[in-house]
Design a binder for these strands. Sequence first.
DNA 1: AATGAATGAGACTTCATTCAT
DNA 2: TATGAATGAAGTCTCATTCAT
Lengths: 218, 218, 218, 218
Amino acid sequence: MTENLMEAMVSETKQKKPTDKKQRIVTVAAELFAEKGYANTSTSEIAKKAEVAEGTIFRHFQTKENLLLSILVPFLKEALPPMAEDVFSKVLNRYTDSPESFFHALITNRYAFFIENKEYFQVFIKELVYNEQIRNEVIPIFQRTVLMQIETAIQTFQEKGKITKTIPSETLTRTAFSIMFGFFLTHLFFQNVDGESNIEEKINQLVHLIMNGMKTSV
Amino acid sequence: MTENLMEAMVSETKQKKPTDKKQRIVTVAAELFAEKGYANTSTSEIAKKAEVAEGTIFRHFQTKENLLLSILVPFLKEALPPMAEDVFSKVLNRYTDSPESFFHALITNRYAFFIENKEYFQVFIKELVYNEQIRNEVIPIFQRTVLMQIETAIQTFQEKGKITKTIPSETLTRTAFSIMFGFFLTHLFFQNVDGESNIEEKINQLVHLIMNGMKTSV
Amino acid sequence: MTENLMEAMVSETKQKKPTDKKQRIVTVAAELFAEKGYANTSTSEIAKKAEVAEGTIFRHFQTKENLLLSILVPFLKEALPPMAEDVFSKVLNRYTDSPESFFHALITNRYAFFIENKEYFQVFIKELVYNEQIRNEVIPIFQRTVLMQIETAIQTFQEKGKITKTIPSETLTRTAFSIMFGFFLTHLFFQNVDGESNIEEKINQLVHLIMNGMKTSV
Amino acid sequence: MTENLMEAMVSETKQKKPTDKKQRIVTVAAELFAEKGYANTSTSEIAKKAEVAEGTIFRHFQTKENLLLSILVPFLKEALPPMAEDVFSKVLNRYTDSPESFFHALITNRYAFFIENKEYFQVFIKELVYNEQIRNEVIPIFQRTVLMQIETAIQTFQEKGKITKTIPSETLTRTAFSIMFGFFLTHLFFQNVDGESNIEEKINQLVHLIMNGMKTSV
DNA sequence: AATGAATGAGACTTCATTCAT
DNA sequence: TATGAATGAAGTCTCATTCAT
């Protein structure tokens, strides 16, 4: 990993319309990286499946690693900052009165994004676990954007007396994130956990657990 | 992956006392697999660091993959079934009256095991994410042992009216597991999240969140 | 090397005024070939530095090798035959009475040409050493033109009793050429051997050494 | 070129007995590098001609460049310092009274060495011309050892009044070296210039030219 | 049991060249 | 004339695995 992810996320704007073949390479590579991981996918395999010459991959991406970044960077660009800015300004402001409706909106919004980008999430999570440099570069960004915004929301609700102050907001944030992320992961690595039908109900249950835990309701 | 993990977990009992060199290979391989992942670690690197000839690795383990299994199988053998049988008979039976004390004992017990085996957990999780065969073989075992035992415990508490019945036990189980696993992962991939000092308090907070959620206590 | 240098040197007269881009390609290629050698310079590098598309190079020169020849041939055309015909008829006839003035004029004349074409000399010498076909084609031409003309001059001086007859004219020629060529090479591969100032004096010294050797003058 | 030639010349002493195959690789590579140059010789070609697997080359030499250094470094180790130290102490001390006998002994000695190592000289000179790093590293060594020793000898003779003082010793040295090196090169790149028979006579003529030049003897 | 030289398949990458636009 | 995307052969190098000692 020579390039820096942050730089890549900034500089990667000058993309003209990607060629047909270039797009095909990205698509196929994402599929294969998602399925078998970056390290277990060869460029010749990508070339074969995308029906291009192997050299074409390198004309467009220079290195295999660059190809990986070309998949991850646009995804992260859409996944991280919007989650912090766009989504939150919408979600948080609108549902500012009840933490329940906030968490419900948050999970619903991110679940939709997640379903749309299942494959990219798989690539991302695999490399997050496997690749130290990506981990080192992405996690701080992630903390500054996603986690801190959730924490801010939670603190707001703590101020309003709607969320307990006896537990530090940091721990609350991590726990809420764990529940949400665990929910997504379940859907990522095990297919068809639940029929798609009752997702709405599942989310309601998660929100209930986040807010009320599993003790018997009085 | 040619061999089957289950078979391996059974057949691998005939281990005599491993040679000095054999042990050194396993130790070094675990370190390197944990750090860089299986696919990014070469046998020659292992040989060099373990100060043995490369041939020696193959004399003992036949294939590189076998070496990986020789690390994971004993670990899983100790991690999974005991968690289900041994630990649960201790934990569940002893703390049968309150879900709080049950979750507290469970998390405490597994956290200790996790701390002891940090390195093996890293190898395991990396390959769980990256390696389809391991995923396919281990997850069902995991579901049958760990998750089902937690679910049984939760169902027992539901019968006793100590845990809500309005949410299916399966969802409750996954959520509890998410919280617990999220807690462990935080400690696995980010060093020094909290000072080691206040672990006890952290666990108490987790248990509180599992049982009561984050809404303001009345 | 498919084309024959002699053919190229003859046929290559039909050059109209070269395009702006064509000229830029030649200039840039000469620079790069001089610096890094033909084999270590890629056409894409040339294209980039000349600010043309890679295809443009091949539209004008068909092959990379042809581009090399397009640099070398005009250079050799000026370097070799004129040295034989033009220069010699001037130099030799004018300075026919003393070998000293002949060698002085010869070295001065070629040194000027060499300084003007330093870069082309570098390309030429690199490929002369590295490329068997160029060596095989150029050396005979070189022998027939340059060396034989010097030898003729030396023989003329031998007839006049101004140069020793006890050593074969061939050996004398090679030695004179070695001294002259060694002087040029020194200036080619090591920068700033002498300040440019005392070139005239250096040449005088070389001529003295060619004619009188290094023994103490009586 | 990552490694430094000087370091390589020092560190390369720990060589145990080279394998049969290792030796074959070196021999074949030297042949091919001499014939076609380093950049135009592929490792697969070397492997084929040496009748080893291509991997074997890299097991022994890590990189192709390292293989080149493994050929050049021992050669230079033998060629340069001995020429300065050993040879000179023999040649200079023994033939201290007349510059003629000194140059005669010097050329004879080096010519023998050159004939024995024709192939290595070809590799060396090709890369000296083509490869900037080798040039930058070897030339200073060369200047400090070979050239300076010749210059010292010449200065000694100047002190004794046997060589002219009107020309700086540096110029004399370079000229003597040009004549000698030109003589060697002629034998390197053009085969069979003279029958081997009259080498002794040729050397005598060179010495005469160095000392007396080509003017008619009185 | 242990070694380490040897292997060869296959990895990533470069590059001269072609061709549709 | 000029472009630059596309090609695929060939290049250097890595690596798990074998085998004679």
